[in-house]
Design a protein around this nucleic acid. Structure first.
Length: 615
DNA sequence: TTCCAGAACGACTCATTCGG
DNA sequence: CCGAATGAGTCGTTCTGGAA
């Protein structure tokens, strides 16, 4: 038996170790309904913080001497600890050194008393809370008392000895990135929901670095390279130890305190005493880059990661709260204090998709309560279908507290011109409407495909074609290179590089693959030969060419239209979904401005598509 | 509930490298 | 030189998302 064999056996042993799952036993109080009111309070004097447990309720008292009481009665749907950070934050903002909470289960009444009444008056406070947080439209439900205690404890700690040190990095942030970071820094858990291309990764990483803990990054494998790049950009010290396999695998755990080290799962295997390393508080400077499955493995191995902070990239992959992986993440996030969520498409289809974001951020309301409040459902024969949204303004206000979303208007990126490109198809070619959705996409495409292929063969401008069925991909292959689910990562990179370097003029991209991290800023025209089912998908796809680094002032987004019924159906679905986006974030809708024929496309391009450096 | 497509992964094969 | 270890590539499975 040689040395290597020994190591392998050791690792297997380590994997079989099952650590007991230690879950804190929370002492629960009954949920109760409260509503927020403001009224003047009598003057009280007492300097100490007292937390007393009675038979039926807890009484929590902070510093006294105040003139305002916020009373909470009759609330449904939200936990109290959800608004407590907000209260705390508003107090911190107003430089109020202390306040009081009095809670009483039996009479369903809570009180928060603010100290230092001279600095603001009742009206001011009410306006501030209303304007900033929509405080008085939001209704809350009480959480387990231990969570309230935890929040208060955190608040105490923060005020007495601020745990958070703000790190300064040389790398300059855009103003909007700085703004996002500033808002995030008021919270322990935060969601970065900016539009694609606005740069979410840097601020979110800095946000977590502040906490001085090991950082776990969960991201799809394909964007790992981007993260390595981001981390390098920050100028964080780490040492490259090996150049085997791929670039990703080339960073080994560096067991020195002064430097950050970037690791991935394969290195955990290679590090025998990883558990000891990770649990050692001295090892705070580790950034662990994982795919979700690797993360799952680590959790199953029983590795204690409770002292880490977590960053979840492309969070829309976890939006189904019933999915196993989402459940796992929610449970894990409840045990740790610092979480950052990143996604550019928080709500693709309906408002309930925002639920898992709020769960990760600490909301503990049931799915049913959330759905009742924010979605309109319709009972079909077999299942409950969500057909529309309601109370979106309120939901939007809640989201604006714990997350930040900005869209393109912040940046000097090219405007987008969306047009319809009409292809006339002989009527006999139209297929009957199939029942299966995937076939629906295909059926809408097949009749126009020969015409488009013929057109595109002679189209001599740099452009991208988006498709969604592999059959279409195979057809397009005869004209230009394509990237779909079957293309390997290496191949994708090569193609993208060649396209950016003008070696290839035309390229076909699958809508699904286009979601992740491609930068095609050297191109100004995209064709949608097929559509996906969501407005956000289209924006994402356009986002590949519509970037800050783009060489164009205006990009052309062409919807290839065969004029069939099916296509109109799909477009309707997309536009309906766009409404939700607009209602929550006030973003632009997908609307087609003009109908172009073959000649008018050429003319328009000739007149408008000018590269910036040609001007 | 159904179906299809894609992502990720494990199991497997095959070729190459390494240690004794 | 042989067998074990390692790496690359392929195939099938599982899970998820999306529509009706």
């Amino acid at each position: 038996m040689n040395n290597n064999t020994k190591i392998r056996i050791k690792e297997k042993k380590y994997h079989s170790i099952q650590q007991p799952d230690i879950q804190p036993q929370l002492s629960l109080v009954q949920r109760q309904k409260i509503r927020i009111l403001l009224k003047p309070a009598p003057q009280i004097q007492s300097p100490d913080i007292i937390i007393k447990k009675y038979k039926q309720f807890y009484k929590i008292t902070f510093t006294f001497s105040t003139t305002i009481i916020a009373q909470f009665t009759q609330v449904e749907g939200f936990p109290q600890h959800f608004y407590l950070p907000v209260c705390f934050q508003s107090l911190v903002d107003q430089r109020v050194p202390g306040f009081q909470i009095q809670g009483n289960n039996s009479i369903f009444e809570y009180q928060i008393q603010f100290q230092n009444a001279q600095k603001f008056n009742q009206l001011q406070l009410k306006t501030t809370l209303e304007n900033q947080y929509g405080f008085f439209q939001i209704q809350y439900q009480l959480e387990p008392i231990s969570l309230i205690l935890r929040d208060i404890e955190q608040f105490q700690n923060k005020n007495q000895s601020p745990q958070r040190t703000t790190l300064i990095f040389d790398f300059p942030l855009f103003p909007h990135q700085q703004l996002g970071l500033d808002q995030a820094r008021k919270f322990e858990k935060f969601a970065f929901l900016d539009s694609p291309g606005l740069g979410k990764s840097l601020p979110s990483l800095i946000f977590l670095l502040d906490f001085q803990k090991p950082i776990l990054i969960i991201a799809p494998f394909i964007v790992h390279q981007n993260w390595v790049k981001t981390i390098k950009q920050l100028g964080i010290d780490f040492v490259e130890m090996s150049k085997k396999k791929t670039e990703i695998n080339s960073f080994y755990a560096l067991q020195k305190q002064q430097k950050y080290s970037l690791m991935d799962y394969s290195q955990i295997h290679k590090t025998n005493n990883f558990i000891q390393l990770f649990n050692n508080s001295a090892l705070q400077k580790v950034i662990l880059l994982l795919t979700f499955t690797e993360f799952q493995k680590i959790i199953n191995d029983g590795l204690n990661l409770k002292l880490t902070s977590l960053l979840i990239d492309e969070f829309h992959e976890y939006k189904d709260i019933t999915a196993k992986r989402t459940q796992l993440l929610v449970n894990f996030c409840n045990q740790i204090t610092n979480v950052a969520i990143l996604t550019a498409t928080p709500a693709l289809n309906n408002s309930t998709e925002l639920y898992s974001i709020l769960r990760i951020l600490g909301l503990n309301v049931t799915m049913k309560a959330f759905q009742d409040r924010y979605a309109i459902t319709e009972n079909t024969k077999k299942y409950q279908k969500i057909i529309a949204h309601k109370n979106v303004k309120e939901l939007s206000q809640i989201l604006k507290i714990f997350s930040i979303r900005r869209s393109y208007d912040l940046l000097p990126i090219p405007a987008v011109k969306r047009v319809k490109f009409q292809i006339m198809i002989p009527k006999t070619n139209q297929l009957s409407t199939p029942s299966c959705p995937a076939l629906l996409q295909l059926a809408s495409t097949l009749p126009k495909l020969p015409f488009f292929l013929n057109f595109y063969k002679n189209f001599n401008h740099k452009s991208v074609v988006f498709f969604s069925s592999i059959q279409v991909a195979d057809a397009l292959q005869s004209i230009c290179p394509k990237i779909d689910g079957r293309t390997s990562i290496q191949e994708r990179k090569t193609l993208i590089r060649q396209f950016q370097d003008d070696e290839i003029q035309k390229i076909a991209l699958s809508m699904e693959c286009a979601n992740l991290g491609f930068d095609l800023s050297n191109c100004g025209i995209c064709f949608f030969l097929q559509l996906c089912w969501t407005a956000a998908g289209i924006v994402q796809a356009e986002g590949r060419i519509r970037r800050v680094s783009s060489k164009f002032r205006q990009i052309l987004s062409v919807f290839v239209d065969g004029g069939s019924e099916v296509e109109n159906q799909i477009l309707n679905v997309i536009q309906k979904k766009g409404d939700l986006f607009e209602a929550i974030y006030g973003e632009e809708k997908i609307e087609l401005s003009e109908v172009f024929g073959v000649e008018s496309i050429e003319t328009w391009i000739g007149q408008n598509m000018v590269k910036v450096d040609d001007m």
